[in-house]
Amino acid sequence: MTLGLLAGHSLSAQPPVTMPDAQVPPPGPALDLINKNCSGCHTTATIFSQRKSADDWAATVQLMVDRGAELKPDEQDAVIGYLTKNFSDSPAAATAPAATPAP
């Protein structure tokens, strides 16, 4: 019985955590999606402490969706873009201006 209670507790949503030495994530809709959909299994500090390429972020987000993260395709794109822009392993990606839609 205790094991069942512990297992149930470990699956409960974890609050977003900030790391003192990590970059503070900028606000925005994609951050809200990350806080809502990713912190159920791990802290957001786990995400924000990583630096990956756009392809690696896309693969990671897809893996999380395959494991049960509930993100629609457009939400996945938003999260991947946000993570690539703000938590890239390439300095150029982190400083590149966001694409602006055509008029």
Results as ranks from 00 to 15, higher is better:
47 I>T: 15
9 H>Q: 13
100 T>D: 10
15 P>I: 04
65 V>M: 03
67 R>I: 03
32 D>H: 06
26 P>T: 11
47 I>L: 15
39 S>Q: 09
72 K>G: 10
82 Y>T: 02
41 C>N: 12
14 Q>E: 10
43 T>Q: 09
16 P>G: 05
64 M>N: 06
28 G>N: 07
45 A>W: 03
32 D>T: 09
5 L>H: 11
70 E>H: 11
47 I>G: 06
87 F>K: 07
10 S>W: 10
20 P>L: 04
77 D>Q: 15
52 K>A: 07
77 D>M: 11
103 P>K: 09
41 C>K: 12
87 F>Q: 09
60 T>S: 15
42 H>K: 08
73 P>N: 08
68 G>F: 08
70 E>P: 02
78 A>Y: 00
5 L>V: 14
72 K>P: 00
14 Q>D: 12
99 A>K: 08
64 M>G: 04
9 H>R: 03
59 A>V: 05
82 Y>N: 02
91 P>C: 03
70 E>I: 08
3 L>E: 10
98 A>S: 15
98 A>Q: 11
67 R>F: 05
7 A>S: 12
89 D>C: 08
3 L>K: 11
94 A>D: 10
40 G>W: 09
65 V>Y: 00
40 G>T: 03
32 D>Y: 01
15 P>L: 05
54 A>E: 12
76 Q>V: 04
23 Q>V: 09
89 D>S: 15
37 N>D: 07
83 L>W: 03
8 G>K: 01
27 P>R: 09
51 R>C: 01
71 L>S: 05
14 Q>P: 05
52 K>I: 04
87 F>C: 04
8 G>R: 00
81 G>T: 13
43 T>P: 12
73 P>C: 07
91 P>Q: 04
